[in-house]
Design a protein around this nucleic acid. Structure first.
Length: 203
DNA sequence: AACTTAGGCAACCGCCTCCAT
DNA sequence: AATGGAGGCGGTTGCCTAAGT
């Protein structure tokens, strides 16, 4: 992607890409606090941001909104994600609607980095031919369909491919557990910081 | 201590849908 | 009914950093 620093100095009329600076965040927060969300392209121009409307929208929805929860996906949320994914597949935004404060991007990343890892490990350990495990065409979806047709899922704290258990002569070798949620995202400047700052700086 | 590797995540891209004209 | 613009969404990329050697 485009995390390369962009030399905007020589191309001020150009659209900026890459990581958002704290200053840009402040501008966007202040603008929305004062004017509300609107047409994003217009908003970007009016706020003086050299960003596309899409970029502003994404930044706001995924990071700057005051109700965004960051890090610490709980076991309950994990369960819900797995459950809803089994039901809807990669409909991340739809899934996100059922997880207050979570964004589709966050859930998508979580799925790909954490949950899919477990799927891969399961595949490597037991092969891919287990009849009751359904992996979609992108390899991104796993679910277990029980005899009554509903999806049975477990929170990942205890996650192991449930369907394999019935086929096994031996206990599942410990599938590595997820890292402790507390260890995640300690190195960000917090949104509380930004919001407290914008409260003082809001025009 | 230095180097390498792998994981996590923010952000972009391209496609699709919706809506106003 | 056709068209173009904007928003929404899922997929993908690549930087940063922690863990491992």
């Amino acid at each position: 992607m485009d995390k390369k620093p962009c030399n905007s100095s020589s191309q001020d009329a150009e659209v900026r890409k890459g990581p958002w600076t704290m200053e840009e965040d402040m501008i966007l927060i202040n603008y929305i606090a004062n004017h509300g969300e609107g047409v994003w392209n217009t908003l970007a121009k009016s706020a003086g941001l050299k960003r596309t409307g899409k970029s502003c929208r994404l930044r706001w929805l995924n990071y700057l909104r005051p109700d965004v929860r960051r890090g610490n996906i709980t076991p309950e949320e994990e369960l819900l994600i797995v459950e809803l994914h089994a039901k809807w597949g990669n409909r991340w935004s739809k899934i996100a609607k059922h997880l207050p404060g979570r964004t589709d991007n966050e859930i998508k990343n979580y799925w790909r980095t954490r949950i899919q890892k477990h799927i891969k490990q399961a595949e490597n350990l037991y092969g891919q031919s287990s009849s009751s495990v359904v992996i979609d065409q992108t390899g991104s979806s796993i679910s277990q369909v029980s005899a009554v047709g509903r999806m049975d899922v477990e929170p990942l704290e205890t996650y192991s491919p449930p369907s394999f258990q019935t086929n096994m002569d031996q206990p599942i070798p410990a599938v590595p557990h997820l890292p402790a949620p507390e260890s995640i995202n300690d190195n960000y400047w917090s949104m509380e910081d930004i919001w407290s700052m914008q409260l003082f700086g809001g025009d």
